[in-house]
Amino acid sequence: MTVFTLINISLLAILVATALTVSRLRALYEAAMLSALFSLVTACLFVLLDAVDVAFTEAAVGVGISTVLLLGGLALTRSREAVTPRRRRLPGAAVAILAGGTLVYASQDLPAFGSADSPVQRHPLTDTYLHQSQEDIGIPNTVTSVLASYRGLDTLGELLVVFTAGVAVLALLGPLAHPVDARRRDDLDLVDYRVLRVISAMLMPFILLFALYVLFHGDFGPGGGFQAGVIFAAGFVLYGLVFGLDKAQQVVPRVVLWALIPFGLLLYLGVGVVNMLLGGSFLDYDTLSSDPAAGQHLGILLVESAIGITVAAVMTTVFFSFANRRATR
């Protein structure tokens, strides 16, 4: 039993225990906090499994944005769950056992965990992504080159999903639903907490700087547009929580936010369309410059920025929608 296995099993055991506790807890604030813990441990496990980019994202999304949204949702609804009646337990247990049984049965023919000789590792994709990409694209972080170039369409789709979520939340909760903004001050903006305000004001520039670093450093280390966007959004969320929503919305007016949501998406699309006009296929960044690798660099940078813009704008909008909802009630 190696150290790796030991840590791996411990983290997995913590995850299972946390999940069981979450499923049993009827106090939903506690469940929300525990699911944040769950995400944090998941992020550690991702690091252990060499998925640093994913860990970064899980930490930013699972621990950050998801928790904030869950707490926001809980603040607007009820925080205690009714007892699950016995008759409801059976169907869930039956489906879970059936599906779980199928999974375990099937896993017998899965390649061994960590095997270097599995079909995944033997497929020519591996060599292309890890080695050929260094010549074609020239970016050390292969996750970024696969994400933004080889599978750029998936990433456009992912951005579209974020966009859809933004539109959906706006349609459900946004100021569109309640044209009149008769808001009162309440303790959501934590105005009494002087220490918090001083420290937050001090950290704010660094948070935004860090977001930019994550955006532009995604070529060489973990990070990229999505993580950067989420960190930006987290910065705005913190600002809104500490200094009040009114002030936050003065800093980033709603009009700007709403213009940025489609702007990022259109920028991504625009890069692809320019590629088409230059004679390549959609998202073929080679066409952007006489030197294909330079073109790839430029294309990936533009695309990552586009992701950052839309993600930051959508996440901020979603948070403001939830927070404003509370104030209008």
Binding site: H123, P124, L125, T128, Y129, S149, Y150, G152, L153, G280, S281, F282, L283, D284, Y285, D286
Partner: peptide
């Protein structure tokens, strides 16, 4: 898409 041949 992106000018990359099929499985890649």
């Amino acid at each position: 898409m992106g000018g990359w041949p099929a499985p890649y």
